[in-house]
Each structure stands twice: as structure tokens, then as C-alpha cells.
Amino acid sequence: MTVTFADWITETANWVFLLIAIPTLAGAVFVVTARNVVRAVLALVVTLAGTAALFMMLGAEFVGWTVVLVYIGAVIILFLMGIMITQAPLTRKTDLSQPMSMRAPAVLLSVILFGVIAWAVIVSFGAEAVPLPDEATSTASIGETLFTNWVIPFEAVSFVLLAALVGGISLARRDPVEEDVG
């Protein structure tokens, strides 16, 4: 089933999509260009909230809420802590981005990458419609699949998280002063 642009723009769901997609992209642009570190990280909240809203629009409620809890709840806090620690007054005040002469090739590369992906996608998918699900994917069905078809990857991911936890602690802690030895 193909869709023309006139059909596309009259569909209400697409207006909702644009309403979510435009702030998402604006937030992403602000993340990579902002001159203030804290504002850049707070713009990341807008981008991630936009993706969470898109997931809920597509019926992927569990993934959407996980993004809200894990990314917006925990990862952003980690970023803010990292900024808080590395922006001590001892830091030499430097520009947050590379000079303009190095930014131009990066813009070129990003635009080329986007162009190639856009061309490939439009050529191969045309205007095929996504059938909007009647009801959201239930958390129960996600959990059932996760613990039947995906048990081994799930356990592997939990092991990776444990390893990251131990690694993070051992990297970030200060070595204790060895004075009470013997």
C-alpha cells in the first residue's frame, strides 16, 4: 500500500508525528551545538522524551517507559554528575567544540551520511505504510518473550551490567592510603 503526500499530510497521526519529531530533532541539534554544557545535557532530555513519545505512539509502551525511567531518570543524572565533577574551577576554560575549520568537514560528512541513508531508504521502501497496532504491545507479552526466546541474551546483558558496575566502581574510587598495613 503506497501513500501520496496529500494523503500523508491529511492523516491526524502524521501531525502528531511531526509535533513529536520536530522538538526531538531540535533538541538533538542543541545537544551538539550548545555553548553551555548543562543546557546541552538538558536538551538531551527533550530528545529522549521525544523518542519515548514515538515509542508509545507505535504501541511500544514498555520500551517507551523504560526510556523515561532509565535514560531520563538515571543516565541524565550521571551526565550531570560528570559535568559537576569535571567543571571544577581548576579547569582551563576552553571552547566546548572544535574550531570552525574542523566543523565544516564534520557537517559535510553528516549531511552525506544522511543523504545516503535517505536515498537508500526511499528507494527500497517507497511510501509503504506502517499499520498502526490496534492495541499496545503488553508488558506481559514482552516479559513472556524475554524469558522464553531471549533468556540467554537477557542473562548476558545482566552479566555485562554487573561487570560495568564493578568496573565503574573500581575505576572511579580513589585508592585508599596504605598506612595501616601491618
Binding site: L25, T47, A106, V111, I117
Partner: peptide, 10 residues
């Protein structure tokens, strides 16, 4: 794709 390109630029 747009988000990925913006992230790459960053």
C-alpha cells in the same frame, strides 16, 4: 537517520 547524523556531528 537525521538523529544519527546529528549525533555523528557531535
Amino acid at each position: 537517520a537525521a538523529l544519527f547524523s546529528i549525533g555523528l556531528y557531535g
